[in-house]
Design a protein around this nucleic acid. Sequence first.
DNA 1: CCAATATACGGAGACCGTCTCCGTTTCGTC
DNA 2: GACGAAACGGAGACGGTCTCCGTATATTGG
Lengths: 206, 206
Amino acid sequence: MVAAGAGARRPRTDKQRNRTHILEVAEQFFSERGITGSLDAIAKRAGVGPGTLYRHFPNREALLAALLQARDDELVSRRDAIRREEADSGTALARWLEALGEWLTAFDGLPEPLRAALSEENSPLAITCQGFITTTDQFLHAAQRDGDAQPQVRGRDLFLTVLATAWVRSAALADESSPQALHALMQSGWMTPRTEKDGSDPARHS
Amino acid sequence: MVAAGAGARRPRTDKQRNRTHILEVAEQFFSERGITGSLDAIAKRAGVGPGTLYRHFPNREALLAALLQARDDELVSRRDAIRREEADSGTALARWLEALGEWLTAFDGLPEPLRAALSEENSPLAITCQGFITTTDQFLHAAQRDGDAQPQVRGRDLFLTVLATAWVRSAALADESSPQALHALMQSGWMTPRTEKDGSDPARHS
DNA sequence: CCAATATACGGAGACCGTCTCCGTTTCGTC
DNA sequence: GACGAAACGGAGACGGTCTCCGTATATTGG
């Protein structure tokens, strides 16, 4: 019963124009000041009233989701490139995780709303994340099949780990090497591999 | 020139009484609703004006720091217990990290202000964190000496990882096993240990 | 016990950010 | 050009943080 087809009016041009302009301004704004800046300030900088901004994007999350759409496409491209170029599944997984980590730091403060979105269904951001988890799972399964990744690891856990790593990054600014160190930690853990026959259970206590 | 010693007046009893009462109420409030609840609401529940609350604790961080003081002591006790009981340095480190992780989930939302505090000097929370990093370093050094932990890992990185893990925890609610999975990931990484002589560099790409 | 005074209290309200409502303007159509 | 639908814009409601200062109270000296 939606749009009976008859009296369909062409959408107003200023609507689309405003929408894209707001997005441009927001992209700039979020890049400069992080995603926690005032939305009214974005409206003002875009030369529109707050009402207009909120009509297009009912809340911060919606604006963010629209903004991320473009970046999302870029990440999908990188995914395809990795699939195309990388024969070794372990390296492919590593490259994917790296690409994902970069994507997650597109804006300062991005991990927070993504984590929040994960807990809620029907969130535009959650859907995006879900897609990334699926992709991670695919790379992971391939790596596990080839013996490059440990069998008990799950895609969701890897995604959460990358997300968490992106989150701490902003705290570790003072320390240049932290991002790399955390990346290595995620790959190999802190514990020395127990290759001998001794207690192979990594968590021996309790 | 602080307090010339002469005309020192005894501090008012209601001040200390209010302070402890506010702390009790805040403890309860933060436990129930997470640390992002309204401070004015805490004042109201404690039966004092907003001004009184803010005089005792100039901002949320100060209140949080005071609240954490007690928990802090508890963690120090656990640290000492581990030192006393645990002969194996690797297990000691694992137990310490576990205790630290539990401490970091004392209140919902706690990791966020801690991360923020890490970037700023002279923050009461930062000092607490610094102490934890130092302790982590001590356990880590012992484990490295005994060959239980990888030599390139740093205490700061481990702390950040535990912090990040505590942070994602609230997103992973739907999934019971995530905390444990992330813990395992931090210990052993996702990659299959390369024990043979082949490329021992875990990250082979560029 | 009663001033005197330092000290702390309380709450009105300034300020800022989010988001809504509705009178006004602008666009597409006939 | 006139009409009606669609979008605009900004005043303002709301809620949270934090401040300022008149008022109340605890402590002390007489």
